[in-house]
């Protein structure tokens, strides 16, 4: 039984690490701010959740699992909010997505 849990934990951790790495490479490689937001989303949702679930499996039923669960819930709550506010601020101040044709912009901004 414990071997199965260990293998599962390893799989979750590996998947999570790969997600975090993909997200980071996306933040580095993608061309503009709005596309980089997507890459950051991978880190903050799937990467974080998979890694923390892997650690929870390693920890078993202890206080550690509860704390990890709280970390997971808090970041799942705050991170999308911060991203939303960031995108909102960027758009309001006037950063436009790369490659949007002029006729697709709202009327007042042409």
């Amino acid at each position: 039984m414990s071997v199965i849990i260990d293998i599962l934990a390893g799989a979750f951790l590996a998947l999570g690490t790969v997600s975090v790495l993909i997200g980071s490479f996306g933040i580095w490689r993608l061309p503009d701010f709005y596309t980089r937001l997507h890459a950051a989303g991978i880190t903050d949702t799937s990467g974080l959740a998979l890694m923390l679930i892997g650690m929870m499996l390693l920890a078993g039923w202890t206080l550690v699992t509860v704390k990890l669960l709280f970390v997971l819930l808090l970041i799942l709550l705050t991170s999308p909010t911060a991203t939303h506010a960031l995108a909102n601020a960027a758009y309001t101040v006037g950063l436009r997505p790369l490659g949007v044709p002029e006729q697709d912009l709202p009327e007042k901004e042409r």
Binding site: L74, L77, T81, H84, A85
Partner: peptide, 16 residues
């Protein structure tokens, strides 16, 4: 404006 921020902050402040 910023309804999301307000709601999430209201949830978060008691936690902090």
């Amino acid at each position: 404006h910023h309804l999301v921020l307000r709601v999430v902050s209201k949830l978060l402040i008691p936690f902090i």
